[in-house]
Design a protein around this nucleic acid. Sequence first.
DNA 1: ACTGCTGTTTGCGCCAGAGCAAACTGCCGC
DNA 2: GCGGCAGTTTGCTCTGGCGCAAACAGCAGT
Lengths: 232, 232
Amino acid sequence: MTLDRSLIAGLPAFAGLDGPGRDAVLARAQSSRFPKDSEVFSQGAEAASFFLLLAGHIRVVRTSPEGHQVIARYINEGELFGIAVAMGRSTYPASAVAAVDCVVLTWPNAAWSDLQARVPSFAASAYQTIGSRLQETQAQVMEMSTQQVEQRIAHALLRIVSQSGRKTDQGIEIDFPITRQDIAEMTGTTLHTVSRLLSAWEDEGLVKGGRQRVVVTDPHGLMVVAENRRRK
Amino acid sequence: MTLDRSLIAGLPAFAGLDGPGRDAVLARAQSSRFPKDSEVFSQGAEAASFFLLLAGHIRVVRTSPEGHQVIARYINEGELFGIAVAMGRSTYPASAVAAVDCVVLTWPNAAWSDLQARVPSFAASAYQTIGSRLQETQAQVMEMSTQQVEQRIAHALLRIVSQSGRKTDQGIEIDFPITRQDIAEMTGTTLHTVSRLLSAWEDEGLVKGGRQRVVVTDPHGLMVVAENRRRK
DNA sequence: ACTGCTGTTTGCGCCAGAGCAAACTGCCGC
DNA sequence: GCGGCAGTTTGCTCTGGCGCAAACAGCAGT
């Protein structure tokens, strides 16, 4: 199957790129499906390709030598990921797991320098992606240093919801399956604490929980929790 | 004063660059001194330049809206910093403060795209710098999620010492002034806890403390602490 | 409908480490 | 040589949230 330039027409990574430019980018890409829970690439593996998520949601997971897992971020549709080549790395620093069935564009690393030269705006967009991830990660360090678990979880939920929220009549729902354990691994806490807090928030009418489901019913109220300016 | 190409001859950022190439890079740079405790740039300020540290040590500090400070990293001699332009950012995400008297090379942002085109290895080195900082920061998030304060502080000390250590007859000394408070802000804890642990380690003969001074007398022993495999 | 599995909730005890307070000390400037 | 201050040490108390354990509930497969 040949890739159509309309596939990537709306993506920020290709903004300001004309039709032929898009064709040039796509010429070296390959599209493939990844079923839920399969790995797109694996931490520590030789980085041979870089990727763009066309459809679905991907979880980026780091595992420590002792076996602890941490979720570094979720990748949304239209985002580049696994761009080790742009950072001059030869292995992937984390694993990428499909949170739902996904469609992914794959380029061989060899295409990178070529694309960089011929389509400079593509490379610039990649560097900006890395820059904003550095930014986000540093913000996370700050959060973990200065804020309590309750604020951190509230922030994490608001972040996910704003990036991958789907409006329903109940409120805004995270549109991929996410467990309490996942939320714990994003915020550096335990599933027990996450469960307790979500239950408490449910009683206050801020969120609604379910099996692998979270719906934020009162984003503004949750924001108040996140900023730690609660009543009393 | 004109800049001599020998200034940057040994730096990794300019490895694989010939003499004229180095001249081209230096032509647009300006050298200046920053006295101890002065700011090279300020968090949130318009990013107009990028920098390279020729001599000294620089502390990169982020301040939260509530006034909490976190030390993101220390910059060593020969490193690029404040390269917001390479990430497509228009403001500095943190402040840079001279930990000792420093000598800094400054380029206007306008020089970036020019240098990138004419001296590709320079740009590549910058991107690699950003990549490894992202890497480090993510590692820090993992540490904060999974390890205890004692291990985190031990790791932080070992990291500083390996990057900015100076050998003395006592052991390896951090060769810039660093307070317990600074160490606390690097590891997300309090100066009290840092002080207690350093005192304990001093009793065990692992380190030697002093006013704004830390000497690691037994790096291997400290490593054992960092890996959390202590006797008993 | 039954069974098993995976994810969730909740109770209880405990402790690492934060917060507060106070005393101490090396060093710099006058 | 003498304050005075910035940085450090140390004691005590209190608590957020972790660890453990057990019960519970939605969902998939047979």
